[in-house]
């Protein structure tokens, strides 16, 4: 099904490799919880992330990008597929088969920044305890050394280190997001999943946080899986971009290639839909007809074909292959 060449080659630069990951949520009914169907949140996804690279996933709500991000970190166990991750000891492990205790150790190297800066911090803990949580869990530090290190972290992310004893309710959204970032950085991971990390913030604060993320990447050689619905943000921060539509990645390419020469009809529509902050440039919109497909009742063939203006008979019959149309430019479409 998938083009094996690019994905199987053991590349020393690879940090993360996702192969054929699926996540089906069962739909149950009745007292006995009989399974009557599945919501295919993520359906057969392949991708990889290199060291020090940012891969962005974009798509509309319900496309499965958040589920995919959580499957990568094993916050949700995927139904099928493998997730290979290279740890700081340069071991290549399959996270999906790792036992609980080994996985807990590997968590040092991969962390997550959440969308909602209000819900993702325990309101009953002080800033110190929140940021120190991963260090305490992994028994890496304690006492005054821990305190000093948390202070350092707070400074790194642009927080006043004197606010150590404050509770999250005393901070604004942007500052809370910084606390979340400091927590994610505490164990000096090499990989971060940013799940809509700036979507809840105002534009001016959003820019501050994006700058911080980029600075940290440079300083600590971090890799990001950057999940967002905002094409503008994605175009600035990522090296490569994957576009998702109801559980499938439909196109994945270098940022420049994707924005300048989109191939998939859905990518084209998505790019044209974003309002441009310039009244002189009237956009040429590709209006999509109909609604996003229901992930529990996917149409046969290409999931996008009922809304696709370029669709042909073949699109409704056969699922398009995941192929490399140009070097580094992957696409799943019969017509492109």
């Amino acid at each position: 099904m998938r083009s094996a060449e690019a994905l199987t080659a053991p590349d020393p630069n690879r940090l993360l490799e996702v192969r054929g990951v699926k996540k089906y949520f069962p739909i149950t009914k009745g007292f006995l919880k009989r399974t009557v169907g599945y919501v295919r949140a993520v359906d057969d996804v392949d991708m990889y992330i290199n060291k020090g690279e940012t891969l962005a996933l974009v798509g509309e709500s319900g496309c499965g990008k958040t589920t995919l991000g959580r499957c990568v970190l094993q916050a949700i166990k995927p139904t099928a597929g493998e997730v290979y991750f290279t740890t700081r000891k340069d071991e290549r492990v399959d996270l999906t088969t790792l036992p609980y205790d080994r996985l807990r150790v590997v968590r040092r190297d991969m962390q997550m920044i959440f969308q909602d800066p209000y819900a993702s911090l325990n309101p009953r803990m002080t800033t110190l305890n929140i940021i120190a949580e991963p260090l305490v869990c992994h028994r890496l530090m304690s006492g005054s050394r821990l305190r000093g290190y948390v202070r350092e972290l707070m400074e790194t992310v642009g927080l006043n280190p004197h606010h150590l004893e404050r509770y999250p309710h005393a901070f604004s959204g942007g500052q809370r997001q910084r606390i979340g970032i400091a927590r994610a950085l505490a164990t000096q991971p090499r990989f971060l999943v940013c799940d809509e990390a700036v979507s809840a913030l105002d534009v001016s604060v959003q820019a501050q946080i994006l700058n911080l993320l980029m600075d940290l990447q440079e300083k600590m050689n971090l890799s990001y899986l950057f999940i967002s619905h905002d094409l503008g943000v994605v175009s600035h921060i990522s090296d490569r971009v994957g576009v998702m539509y109801v559980g499938h990645i439909v196109e994945l390419a270098d940022t420049a290639a994707l924005f300048d020469r989109p191939m998939h009809p859905y990518t084209k529509a998505l790019l044209s839909a974003k309002p441009v902050a310039d009244p002189r440039r009237k956009s040429h919109r590709i209006m999509l007809e109909g609604e996003v497909a229901n992930p529990s009742k996917l149409p046969p063939g290409c999931p996008f074909h009922p809304r696709c203006r370029e669709a042909a008979a073949e699109c409704g019959e056969r699922k398009p292959e995941w192929r490399e149309a140009e070097p580094g430019h992957y696409i799943a479409c019969h017509r492109a």
């Binding site: 916050a75 807990r104 968590r107 962390q111 969308q115 819900a119 869990c137």
Partner: peptide, 22 residues
């Protein structure tokens, strides 16, 4: 389902710690 519980798990907290601390 709270995000900070997921966050604690991803921070490497054990089951017991998630239940009793969070």
């Amino acid at each position: 389902e709270e995000e900070f519980v997921t966050a604690a798990r991803l921070s490497g907290a054990t089951h017991g710690r998630v239940i009793f601390k969070h």
